[in-house]
């Protein structure tokens, strides 16, 4: 496919960083605000689609994307498997308030009656394995959606059918 006009390219270049950052925010704050790995990954995936449309069939490193995808999944299932050390598969082994790094959660929270309600100002590192898994899944989804878009896009635009 031919490249788009300079206007589209420039706008894409300008908004690239902003959209990417927004996607990262959605991924990293999945356990605090609406969002999570899948949603943020989808945002960055659409960014890649925008890039593909604007700049045409440039060279994409599918091998690197594939490695990123596998790494994300391995981190995800590995975090689940680490739960076996102190509990069962998918046990939140660094959750709870007693964990110094990932467990702290009540900063900025408030007590209503007997129940402690955390607020949105809870720290980024909280809720145990959830944030790690969010990041891993985010990585996987970014790579997976990009791979799908790039493979189908290059096939449709340039007719390229690369194996592997």
């Amino acid at each position: 496919m031919k490249e788009m006009s300079p206007i589209v390219k420039t706008i894409t270049k300008i908004s690239f960083a902003a959209i990417f950052l927004f996607g990262l925010y959605i991924i990293l704050h999945g356990h605090l605000t609406p969002g999570g790995g899948f949603q943020g990954g989808a945002i960055i995936g659409t960014l890649m689609a925008l890039y593909l449309v604007a700049f045409g069939a440039v060279k994409w490193r599918k091998k690197v994307l594939s490695i990123i995808e596998s790494t994300g999944l391995l981190v995800f299932i590995g975090t689940g498997l680490l739960g076996l050390t102190t509990g069962y598969f998918f046990f939140n082994f660094i959750g709870g308030t007693d964990n110094p790094i990932f467990g702290q959660q009540l900063n900025g929270g408030e007590l209503i009656g007997d129940v402690a309600f955390p607020s949105n100002s809870a720290p980024l590192l909280s809720s145990g394995t959830i944030s790690i898994m969010n990041m891993a899944v985010g990585l996987e989804v970014i790579a997976a959606l990009t791979l799908i878009i790039v493979t189908m896009g290059l096939f449709a635009f340039a007719g390229s059918e690369e194996g592997e």
């Binding site: 356990h31 605000t33 998918f90 308030t97 467990g103 955390p118 607020s119 809720s127 145990g128």
Partner: peptide
């Protein structure tokens, strides 16, 4: 606060934990 998970976002807690 003494629960196993402690997440602000219950939906994410269900999805990932």
């Amino acid at each position: 606060p003494n629960g196993t998970v402690n997440a602000n976002n219950v939906v994410t807690a269900i999805v990932f934990d």
